[in-house]
């Protein structure tokens, strides 16, 4: 088993070491993942419901109000003001 694991590790290590074009592509992938997760997700794309509400009941209440409010969608802050 140990030999198998070692040979798999060697297989990957050697594969990565011998890359040429692959190194550029991996650099692009890593930069892209950094921008997507560390910049876009963190600063621009919070999950609206998870970031504003703690429990599923609060989320349900908010969405229910959004879907049934005759005056249209309310910002989460406005919803909290209207909810006792």
């Amino acid at each position: 088993m140990k030999r198998l694991i070692a040979s798999v590790i060697t297989f990957y290590a050697e594969g990565f070491r011998r890359m040429t074009l692959g190194k550029t592509l991996w650099a692009i992938i890593l930069i892209k993942l950094f921008v997507i997760f560390a910049v876009l997700k963190l600063f621009f794309f919070p999950n609206l419901l998870n970031s504003r509400f703690d429990t599923p009941e609060q989320k349900s209440a908010y969405v229910a109000k959004q879907l049934t409010a005759p005056h249209g969608n309310l910002l989460p802050e406005q919803h909290q003001k209207h909810t006792p």
Partner: peptide, 25 residues
């Protein structure tokens, strides 16, 4: 594959932020 990978994840972000009523519903 390398350039395209993970571009679909952004759609999932948009569901959570821009389309939260839909995502919950």
């Amino acid at each position: 594959f390398a350039i395209g990978v993970a571009t679909g994840i952004i759609l999932e972000f948009e569901f959570g932020t821009n389309w939260s009523n839909y995502s919950w519903f």
